[in-house]
């Protein structure tokens, strides 16, 4: 066993000697399960608002980018240990996350979060059962309120929980819930809205200030010439800047 380990280590060390410049390829980490922000399209590729935005930002910052999907739960640890260079996954800027990673400036306005429930249910916001995706601002919001929080690893499962009656309602970004309610007669978006979070930004490693500056400049230029607003309108994500 010692031999195999040493052998592997030796192989790994000598595997490649090519020189890599600083960020010759920027790996963009996303979840791929949160339309319209990001999702996997029919041909199996990352698609959505953030795909278009990310490609445009990379073009403006003159970077070569590659898209990688990662589970939401481990999306921050994998960024920190260097498996990819950015998180672009509809991640709202919060103080808690900011302690671990750095954020670029926000590229969406704080998106109101809404509740989705079965048509005709009377949801009790202070004592009922509300579903949310784990490690999201919505989950933190419900945990702090009087309602009982049930957490799920994927956004999809939160909707399934409402359908099955496990939860009275689900709290998530309005842009995510709205299309679901439109296409399913049995589900409705409630009138009550919560304003949480400081908008969505790209996450980068705290030590990676160079990359952060490049993306900040690119986002600013997209804000200035109105292309960002056009994208936001196209994918129906909240108000523009």
């Amino acid at each position: 066993m010692k031999f195999i380990l040493l052998g592997t280590a030796a192989l790994v060390i000598t595997a490649s000697v090519a020189f890599a410049g600083s960020h010759s390829v920027v790996r963009m980490g996303t979840e791929g399960a949160y339309p319209p922000y990001n999702f996997i399209n029919d041909s199996g590729e990352v698609d959505g608002f953030e795909r278009e935005l990310g490609d445009e930002l990379c073009a403006r910052a003159e970077l070569t980018c590659e898209w990688v999907t990662n589970e939401w739960d481990s999306i921050i640890p994998n960024l920190v240990s260097g498996n990819y260079d950015t998180i672009i996954a509809g991640m709202s800027i919060t103080d808690e996350r900011d302690e671990v990673i750095d954020f670029t400036q926000n590229y969406t306005q704080p998106d109101p979060s809404t509740y989705l429930a079965l048509d005709g249910t009377d949801v009790d916001f202070d004592g009922g059962v509300i579903a949310a995706q784990a490690n999201t601002i919505q989950a933190a919001f419900i945990a702090a309120s009087g309602a009982t929080l049930v957490e799920f690893a994927t956004p999809d499962e939160t909707i399934a929980a409402v359908r099955s009656g496990e939860a009275d309602a689900v709290l998530a970004d309005d842009a995510y819930l709205r299309p679901i309610a439109e296409e399913n007669a049995d589900l409705v978006v409630l009138d009550k809205q919560e304003l949480i979070g400081g908008g969505v930004g790209m996450g980068v490693r705290e030590s990676d200030t160079e990359l952060k500056d490049k993306f900040n400049a690119a986002i600013q230029s997209m804000k200035d010439d109105g292309t960002l607003n056009a994208l936001l309108a196209k994918w129906e994500i909240g108000p523009g800047f």
Partner: peptide
């Protein structure tokens, strides 16, 4: 950068 595994610029 040259110690990254796999190298940051290698294909997916």
């Amino acid at each position: 950068d040259i110690a990254k595994l796999p190298l940051g610029n290698s294909p997916q």
